[in-house]
Simulated assay, not measured.
Amino acid sequence: MDRHHPDVNEELIDLLTHTALDERKAFARLYQLAAPQLLGILLRHVRQRALAEELLQDCFIEIWDHAPDYRPERGMPLAWMGRIARNKAIDALWQSPNEASSAPPVLFDPGAGDEPLAVLSERSETSALSDCLRHLPAAQRQSVVLAYFYGQSHREIAGILGSPSGTVKGWITRAVAHLRECVGV
């Protein structure tokens, strides 16, 4: 599917509109068109096909539930659904950190250049970090994960989360401060 083609976007908008009216045939067609792209997003994040497929089902449940909230004037339909997929993947990574990666995370203080704050190498420290991340507001948690685990810039994160770059920078700064205090670094 060429997601930039106007006809495809119009069809997806139409399908979301009909899905919002609880039309199952429209939802089935929406799944058929969007599932491959959303699965690709999920696989890039979680790197496990079984988990990505499970999350894909969760994404479409959320799409079904929130189809009435979609507004075409606020963005392309695949971008809206892609945000749902990315959020599901990020949440899954924090709910099961051992499944996502065996490598410990590295945190950097955005206010101090590229100096590492700490390299968390002990399993208990990684678990403590996961616990601390769970206590962050969703936007801060997603911002810090996208920045430090996926190497996204503030501008890229702003595009993913649909927020201004300055807001994202503030979220990351507050999240890092919280994490430093929480894990005792």
Rank of each mutant, 00 (worst) to 15 (best):
L42A: 00
R180F: 01
T173P: 00
P72S: 04
W64R: 00
K25V: 05
V46R: 09
I172A: 05
G170I: 01
P68M: 02
N9G: 14
Q57T: 13
P137S: 07
V144T: 02
D109Q: 09
R49E: 15
R134L: 09
W171M: 03
T173W: 01
F149S: 10
Q142T: 08
A138F: 11
A67P: 00
A35P: 09
N9V: 12
P105L: 15
S102W: 07
F149Q: 12
I41A: 01
L56V: 06
A139Q: 12
A79M: 04
A103N: 13
G82N: 09
L120S: 01
S163T: 03
D131K: 12
T126D: 08
A138D: 14
M76N: 02
P137F: 05
A147W: 03
A67Q: 01
R83Q: 08
L93V: 15
Q48V: 13
L161M: 10
V144Q: 02
V145M: 12
D69I: 01
R83N: 07
V185T: 07
Q95N: 14
L38H: 00
L107F: 10
V176R: 01
E11L: 05
E54R: 12
G166D: 10
C182Y: 02
L43G: 03
L146F: 03
A103H: 11
D7Y: 12
P36I: 05
D65K: 14
C132H: 02
H45T: 07
P164S: 06
L56S: 02
D65G: 06
R29T: 01
R3A: 11
L39R: 08
R155A: 14
W64N: 00
I172Q: 08
L78V: 08
H4V: 11
Y31A: 00
L179M: 12
Q57C: 07
Q152N: 08
R29E: 04
E181N: 13
L39S: 03
D58Q: 11
R29V: 05
E54P: 05
E23Y: 08
L107G: 07
R71V: 11
A92K: 07
H4R: 15
L107S: 05
G184M: 06
D58T: 09
E99P: 04
E53D: 10
W171Q: 08
A177C: 03
V183Y: 07
V144D: 03
F149L: 13
T173H: 09
P104R: 03
G75I: 06
N98H: 15
A50Q: 15
A139F: 06
E23L: 09
R134A: 15
E62R: 06
E122G: 15
P97A: 11
D69T: 07
L78M: 13
M1S: 10
E73P: 04
L43M: 13
A50Y: 08
R47A: 14
T173C: 00
Q37T: 11
D91T: 13
A67R: 01
A158C: 04
A100G: 15
E10K: 15
I172C: 06
E125F: 05
